[in-house]
Design a protein around this nucleic acid. Structure first.
Length: 213
DNA sequence: AACTCGGGGCA
DNA sequence: TGCCCAGAGTT
């Protein structure tokens, strides 16, 4: 079933109302801290990232300090989140670049961020949209799933979904819409057992009767 | 486009 | 236990 543009606008309005105030912006005090937290969050819950960063950042909250800590010790700090070896390696490499090319600061442009080891489209979009005021929609697995199921933006790749969402959603709503879609994916439109019975998009979503697709 | 990394969370 | 996960890099 094809979702008309009018229906898409209705669904977006409902999501905006239903998830008003919802945010995933974490209270990290510097861009560098948020960057590291987002890198760590891949395939890992926010709760666990919070535990790790609460131990790490009091002493190691700058690229230079992380480099001084070293990769082996960094691995010990972040061992409780998955993929920790590659994350540690990427974080060290990123810190070296930040120190060498950016004066120890986090670059503000998407093109620069995405070149950093461990930073892909999703992470770069999160940083620029939540930190530097550049409108963007970060497509993670939740956003990807919700967009495809609801028909807001169909696509085989996250990139396609990202571009589709940008076409449907007004630019000024991109950052907020990212949060609506993520929260909807977490709480209602879940990967396993979607709670279609309590879904605010009931009646509009084409996957209502077969939400496992 | 498919594969891999990896411990946690959940049924 | 087995299966999936608030991704990114490599092949």
């Amino acid at each position: 079933m094809r979702v008309t543009k009018v229906v898409k606008q209705q669904m977006l309005a409902i999501l905006a109302e239903h998830y008003r105030g919802a945010t995933t912006a974490l209270n990290y005090s510097t861009p560098f801290e948020l960057l590291i937290a987002v890198i760590l969050s891949a395939q890992c819950t926010d709760e666990r990232v919070n535990i790790i960063t609460a131990r790490l950042f009091p002493q190691y909250n700058t690229p230079a300090k992380i480099l001084a800590l070293g990769q082996d010790k960094l691995e010990e700090y972040i061992r409780d989140c998955g993929l920790f070896r590659s994350k540690a390696r990427n974080i060290i490499a990123t810190c070296e670049i930040l120190c060498r090319a950016y004066g120890g600061e986090v670059p503000t442009r998407f093109e620069d961020l995405i070149k950093l080891p461990g930073v892909g489209r999703k992470t770069a979009n999160v940083i620029v949209s939540q930190l530097f005021g550049t409108p963007a929609i970060a497509v993670d697995t939740h956003v990807f799933r919700v967009a495809n199921r609801t028909g807001l933006a169909k696509g085989k790749t996250p990139r396609e979904v990202e571009e589709g969402l940008m076409r449907v959603i007004p630019r000024q709503d991109w950052a907020d819409a990212h949060h609506w879609l993520i929260w909807h994916g977490r709480k209602v439109c879940k990967a396993r057992q979607p709670a279609c019975d309590v879904c605010p998009l009931n009646g509009l979503c084409p996957s209502r009767e077969d939400a496992t697709k």
